[in-house]
Design a protein around this nucleic acid. Sequence first.
DNA 1: ATAAGCCTAGGGGAATTTCCCTATATAAAT
DNA 2: ATTTATATAGGGAAATTCCCCTAGGCTTAT
Lengths: 207, 207
Amino acid sequence: MSKIAIYIVDDHEIVREGIAAFLIGVPDIEVKALFPDAMSVLKSLEKDLPDVLLLDIGLPDIDGIKLAERLKISHPKLPILIISGNTDDRHLIGAVKAGVKGFLPKDVEKTELCEAILRVASGKKYFSSEISQSLQNALINHLDTAELSAREKEIAILLADGLSFREIGSQLFISERTVEAHKNNAIKKLGLRNTMQLVAWAVTNLK
Amino acid sequence: MSKIAIYIVDDHEIVREGIAAFLIGVPDIEVKALFPDAMSVLKSLEKDLPDVLLLDIGLPDIDGIKLAERLKISHPKLPILIISGNTDDRHLIGAVKAGVKGFLPKDVEKTELCEAILRVASGKKYFSSEISQSLQNALINHLDTAELSAREKEIAILLADGLSFREIGSQLFISERTVEAHKNNAIKKLGLRNTMQLVAWAVTNLK
DNA sequence: ATAAGCCTAGGGGAATTTCCCTATATAAAT
DNA sequence: ATTTATATAGGGAAATTCCCCTAGGCTTAT
């Protein structure tokens, strides 16, 4: 029985090395290579496949979840284990939809990381207990809806432009309560906390 | 048509002579005088004005940029062309604010120096391509974000992350009123309407 | 030395947003 | 036909933010 070969993908060198350091000396596990971005690991995967891919979400070139979606198509049997500091609803659901085998928070402990890798390598799933908790809530809130309606997007943009509910209402000839309702729906769908985050989301995704 | 009269100001004799040597024999250009410091050239300018003043920044008595600011007042039409080895943000922005007509790095080539002098003498501006590049970055870094203090930027980012005044306050160990004050100052400085616009600004400029 | 900018922080009331609800109508999908 | 999503909108109270003000201590520049 050969060791479990691991690829690590993370844009921060410290994190890459930190994970690698965790795993050095662990029997049955061998870190094969480290990658700072999606493109480099994609290239490498053409030649050689690890047994488990440890993947961060915040990559510079391709979002980790997008990458996971792609890999599901090109390498459907490659088990992906996400390690991310960002555990909000959107990311969790995106990851699950993309079919990742596990999800760990970035402050995971050594023993749990090893446990997760062994599980995932043997074809099972592993979601840390914190993650499971959040994921359940996220699924309850919005399993299938990640897209905003046209009206919701419109209002998100107007909010980002600095208009109040009242101003948006009179501009769109609807009640300010309706504006509020659309805003609330948008926040729920995206798994956000408040209007500030919606504005931030709108700026990065709608402009 | 008489030649273009040049004053050269630089504390290093080698540089003064070097520039002069560059310009000797160039038709249409005549080096009128060399000065090792700001005071000597100030005295000279009371009697006689050149067509272009070549000015170094690192002078022993008065900083070249300060000198340029003064001269803008006393001799507003005198075109100043900075030649400096120091091309950091502060100097570039200072020079531009002082209204200098051109800026060259100290390793400028003969042809470019002549070109710059001719341009400046005819009332145009001349910034070498290296300088333009750096200047653009400097302007982006400073006139844009440097308008906000570090604290203000910090709070703008935290707001964009979706934190309330209270949460930001306890995270930074300051009162929520102080957070509000910083936020208000940031909004005023940037000429915005409200926090939504500040968040939008923060997302595009600070992330 | 004086001014300017920054960081701090409070008072108090007005305005706005947020958070619970409920509700109807319409179009699209199953 | 029934569900689902969308768009609309209100009540009411709590929470938060906004807007005006003042103000002291500190550093930096002129």
